[in-house]
Measured scan of single mutants.
Amino acid sequence: APRKVEMRRDPVLGFGFVAGSEKPVVVRSVTPGGPSEGKLIPGDQIVMINDEPVSAAPRERVIDLVRSCKESILLTVIQP
């Protein structure tokens, strides 16, 4: 079942996760003590960023979407 995860941007750590460059977009790592800790799990597949589906989106679009979130971000993720 999809999970909705909302995180506030940390001034130092950002959102505190690293996503892979393949499709679908998969969470590779979560920064300890960062905003994503306890919310995202490595292996989570990101299916939506805010209200935009990203399963088939180019990597550049995913990066732009994350960067455009100055304060908070809403991710919809699934464990494949």
Rank of each mutant, 00 (worst) to 15 (best):
E52V: 14
G34S: 14
K70N: 09
E60A: 13
R3D: 02
V25F: 07
V62P: 01
M48V: 07
E22Y: 13
S68G: 13
F17W: 05
R61Q: 14
R67C: 10
F15D: 01
V25A: 11
S36L: 01
V5I: 10
F17P: 01
V12P: 03
I41N: 15
I49P: 00
F15M: 04
K23I: 09
I49M: 03
S68I: 05
P42C: 11
V62D: 01
L40Y: 00
S72T: 13
G14R: 03
Q79F: 05
V12G: 11
R67K: 14
V54M: 08
M48H: 07
M7Q: 00
A1G: 06
P80K: 07
I78R: 14
V62W: 04
V27G: 00
K23Q: 11
Q79W: 05
I78C: 12
R67T: 13
R8T: 13
V18P: 00
S36T: 03
V25N: 05
D10K: 03
G33D: 13
P2Q: 15
D51N: 11
V30L: 08
G38K: 08
R3L: 05
I41K: 14
R67E: 14
R61A: 13
T31G: 05
L65I: 11
V54Q: 02
I78F: 11
I73Q: 03
I73G: 03
I46V: 13
V18C: 11
S21H: 12
I73S: 03
S36F: 02
S21E: 15
S21N: 14
P58H: 09
G16V: 00
V25I: 08
G16N: 02
E22S: 07
Q79I: 03
V25C: 14
A57P: 01
P58L: 05
K39R: 12
M48I: 07
G20Q: 12
G34N: 00
L75V: 08
R59V: 11
T76L: 06
S72H: 13
L74N: 12
L74G: 15
R67L: 08
E60N: 12
V26P: 02
S29Q: 12
V77K: 03
R61I: 08
G33L: 08
S29P: 01
R59M: 11
E22Q: 12
E71C: 07
V30M: 04
L75E: 03
P80Q: 14
G43L: 04
P42Q: 11
G33T: 06
M48L: 09
V66A: 05
L75C: 05
T31V: 10
P11C: 05
V26Y: 07
L74A: 14
P80H: 06
E60G: 13
I63G: 11
G20K: 09
G33A: 10
V25G: 03
L75M: 13
P53K: 14
I46M: 04
A19F: 13
V27S: 00
D44W: 01
G38H: 11
E22D: 09
A57C: 14
G20N: 09
P80G: 09
V25M: 15
R61H: 13
M48F: 13
F15V: 01
F17L: 04
V30T: 09
Q45S: 08
G16L: 00
L40R: 00
V12W: 07
K70Q: 09
P11M: 07
P35S: 04
V5L: 07
V66H: 02
Q79P: 13
R3C: 00
G34C: 03
R67Y: 10
K4N: 05
E52T: 12
V26R: 11
T76F: 06
F17T: 01
G34A: 06
I73Y: 02
I41F: 15
P35F: 00
E52G: 04
A57T: 14
D64P: 03
R9G: 04
R59W: 13
G33M: 07
E37M: 07
V77F: 02
D51C: 07
D51M: 09
E6K: 14
E52C: 10
T31H: 13
S72L: 05
L75H: 03
R59C: 12
R9S: 07
E37K: 06
S29K: 10
P58M: 05
L40S: 01
T76H: 11
P35E: 04
R67M: 10
L74T: 13
E71I: 05
V18G: 08
K39F: 12
Q79V: 05
G16P: 00
A57R: 07
I78Q: 15
L40T: 01
K70Y: 07
L65F: 08
G16W: 00
G43K: 05
S36V: 02
M48Y: 09
K23V: 07
P58C: 11
P42T: 10
V54K: 00
T31N: 10
V5T: 04
A1I: 15
V77P: 03
S29N: 12
D44R: 00
P35Q: 04
A1Q: 02
L65R: 08
P53W: 08
D10I: 04
P24I: 02
P24A: 03
G34M: 02
R3Q: 05
G14A: 05
M7H: 00
P42K: 08
D10L: 04
E6L: 13
S55A: 12
V77R: 02
V47N: 06
K39S: 08
D44I: 00
N50S: 06
A19T: 14
V5Y: 08
V27N: 01
Q45V: 07
I41V: 13
V18K: 08
K70D: 10
I78W: 10
E6W: 11
N50I: 02
I73D: 03
V47A: 08
